[in-house]
């Protein structure tokens, strides 16, 4: 028999969820519809008026070769940061989980990076990675010109990816560790008695068992790497050199706020939103099928 709680009074439930609904409407759906409206118009920045242009804004960005480069760069960026951040976090979590000496300390120390705001980390990393004066830059004195994110786009992109991944490690680590600790000891012990080495145990036992966590983190990391890179890029490279670290969010910010092209930026954010929705949908549709929750 299905048990369901229900209210006799039809108004009361609405009142109860009212505050939450208002919050969501005001802070999420209202801006989204506004952006949607702007994406189909040409909006004057000072609010002098606008004209309806149908799909012109979207056609304009799709025609722009540089925009597609930005999309490709964002995808590459998302894959690399997610992969790097999760791999390192899992690696660390596996060691901490093995109850080595000092585990207790590492458990809390590894989370710290997550508590640092991206722009603050960006400023610190800018000094660390600076080619002419930073700590990493000092390898230039051994091999001149080997590290130069200020002029070499590839180096700059690698630098941002490393920093973004670094910021996410703490968050991923906590989830991995919690998941690993949920696995009954007897299972890993049985594996060990059958002669499986730690690495084998990780791939054959632990990883399948924590698959739901991996799946959850995959989604969270991918979304975050599409949308949260702004703070780092703005403080470290401002999209340069030659636009080689310009990802989708940064281009939206630049076109909208610096270039005052509100409509173009609105159209780009709609595209980004659809992309993130599609990505999440795909993951739930196909990837989740391979995840077993029990």
């Amino acid at each position: 028999m299905e048990r369901r709680a229900y209210y006799r009074n039809p108004v009361l439930p609405w009142l109860l969820i009212g505050p939450q609904l208002i919050l969501v409407l005001v802070f999420f759906y209202w801006p989204t519809t506004q952006a949607l409206y702007w994406a189909f118009t040409l909006e004057q920045p000072w609010g002098g008026g606008n004209s309806w242009v149908w799909l012109d804004n979207f056609l304009a960005i799709f025609r722009d070769g540089e925009y597609w480069l930005t999309v490709a760069r964002s995808a590459f960026y998302a894959l690399c940061t997610t992969g790097l951040s999760m791999a390192v976090a899992l690696f660390l979590a596996c060691f901490v989980d093995r109850a080595l000496k000092g585990t207790k300390i590492f458990q809390s120390v590894y989370v710290w990076p997550y508590a640092i705001a991206a722009p603050a980390a960006g400023v610190a990393f800018r000094f660390i990675f600076a080619p002419q004066s930073g700590i990493v830059g000092s390898i230039n004195q051994i091999w001149p010109g080997i590290w130069d994110p200020a002029t070499n786009g590839v180096h700059a992109l690698i630098m941002i990816i490393i920093c973004h991944a670094w910021l996410g490690i703490g968050y991923n680590f906590i989830f991995f560790l919690a998941a690993l600790q949920m696995i009954p000891r007897s299972i890993t012990e049985a594996g060990a008695m059958d002669g499986a080495r730690p690495v084998r145990r990780m791939f054959d036992l632990q990883l399948p068992l924590i698959a739901p966590t991996v799946f959850f983190l995959l989604i969270m990391n991918l979304i975050s790497s599409f949308t949260d890179s702004f703070g780092l890029i703005d403080t470290m490279t401002e999209g340069g050199p030659v636009g080689s670290t310009e990802v989708m969010v940064y281009k939206i910010y630049f076109d909208g706020f610096k270039g005052l092209d509100y409509s173009g930026a609105a159209a780009q954010s709609i595209v980004l939103m659809l992309l993130v929705i599609a990505l999440t949908f795909v993951q739930f549709k196909w990837v989740e099928k391979r995840v077993h929750y029990n």
Binding site: R126, Q132, S133, G134, A150, P241
Partner: peptide, 9 residues
């Protein structure tokens, strides 16, 4: 010589 904020000086 290139000098800028991201180059360190």
């Amino acid at each position: 010589v290139h000098k800028s904020k991201d180059a360190g000086e």
